Simulated scan of single mutants.
Amino acid sequence: MLAYLRRRVLSSALPLLVVILGVFFLARLTGDPTNLYLPLSATAQQRADFAARNGFDQPVLVQFVDYVGQVVRLDFGESLRTAQPAATAVLRAFPATLQLAGAAMVIAVLAALVVGSLAAYRPNSAADRAASFLSSAASSTPDFWFAIMGVLVFAVWLGWLPTSGTAGAAAWILPVVTLLIRPFGVLVQVVRGAMVTALSAPYVKVARSKGASERQVIFGHALRNAGAPVLTVAGDLAVGLVNGAVVVETIFGWPGIGKLMIDSILQRDFAVLQAAVLVTAVAIFLLNILIDVGYALLDARVRQGAMA
């Protein structure tokens, strides 16, 4: 297992290097921050002093080498806007994103397990057809459209929910539902397909012949063996939730890493943007490692292959 994890870590090193390279150079395509942080009346000397103070007077390649050296030392620089360490802003925003994505993913998985299992228990029934329609509609609904319509209907027209912020449980409803709707739709289809296969397996017939109740058959035997493909897809969707939080956080004013990225782009705050993207990439990398470990624990064939 350790050899398997070592291979996965080494194989993910190159993508992380690409992220470091890409975010550094792409950030500079947003424009010169000097024009944003200094008034139009600033003199040439003031502009030169600003550039020298922030290292913008150096060639881009020199700036990149300095940046990589800082990252190795876990120094992400200072925010141009607040003059505080960029890592402080990122670490302050990232928990909000994890809370939002985590709540959405937990609810989506639990709901999908229930709906998908019930649909698979009686294929082609009314419940199965209703679950298929619901999952298809949910998986094909764009996040931004649902978010906008949710704000329009439940916040503006009905006045039941706030349009933005994090104060109170009501403020969580629209962002969480917006994030979970697509993973729920996809997972219902995956759970149903895996459960249909599992329920027709020989070990289920043996369990029933031994007098096991239907609850034991579904949740104790079939669902446990159908867990591997569900875990894999859920992990991929969880990674997508972290990325998709950019849109949701911007619409609902959620103080997470996605909103921080957008604000940093608009403000040309290079240090904060670079730190936010890099920390997000590392979090996704660690999440993928956890998914691989979970999949290996659920599937003996993967576990044996990892030990080979």
Rank of each mutant, 00 (worst) to 15 (best):
S11E: 06
D128P: 07
V247Q: 03
S11T: 12
L26A: 14
E249P: 05
T166E: 02
V156E: 05
G235M: 09
F64R: 10
L2D: 06
P229S: 07
L2H: 11
G159Y: 06
Y295I: 12
A87K: 04
G211C: 12
L40M: 05
A103P: 05
V60I: 10
A120Q: 05
F56T: 12
G235E: 04
L298Q: 02
L179M: 15
I265T: 03
D66W: 04
A131D: 10
K205N: 06
R28H: 15
A222Y: 00
V115N: 02
M1F: 14
L10C: 09
L40V: 13
Q58L: 15
A89K: 00
T178N: 07
T232G: 10
M149R: 08
I20P: 01
G165M: 06
G116P: 05
A42K: 05
I173R: 02
V217N: 04
L187M: 13
I181G: 01
P59C: 12
L297H: 03
V72W: 03
L290M: 13
T166M: 12
L74T: 08
P142V: 12
E214S: 14
V23D: 01
Q45H: 07
R92G: 02
S200I: 03
Q189E: 13
R224G: 07
V293K: 04
I181L: 15
V176D: 02
F270W: 01
S125G: 15
Q304W: 06
V217F: 09
Q274F: 02
S200T: 10
P162D: 06
R224E: 07
A245P: 10
I181Q: 01
I262T: 02
R53W: 04
G31Q: 11
G256N: 08
P85L: 02
Y67A: 07
W254I: 09
G168N: 04
T34M: 10
V277I: 15
S135T: 11
S139L: 12
Y295N: 12
T178Q: 00
L298H: 10
I20C: 10
Y295P: 04
G193H: 10
V23I: 15
K210H: 11
R73Q: 11
Q189D: 12
I251V: 15
S136H: 09
A3R: 11
G102A: 13
A51Q: 13
Q58G: 07
D143C: 05
I257Q: 00
A89Q: 01
A238M: 15
A126H: 03
S79Q: 05
S213K: 08
A201T: 06
D49Y: 11
L91C: 03
F76M: 09
S200M: 09
D57Q: 04
S213L: 11
V109A: 08
L16C: 09
V246K: 00
L187R: 02
V239Q: 08
L273I: 03
R28F: 13
A228R: 01
G305P: 02
S209T: 06
A130R: 11
E249D: 01
L237R: 04
L10R: 07
L134P: 04
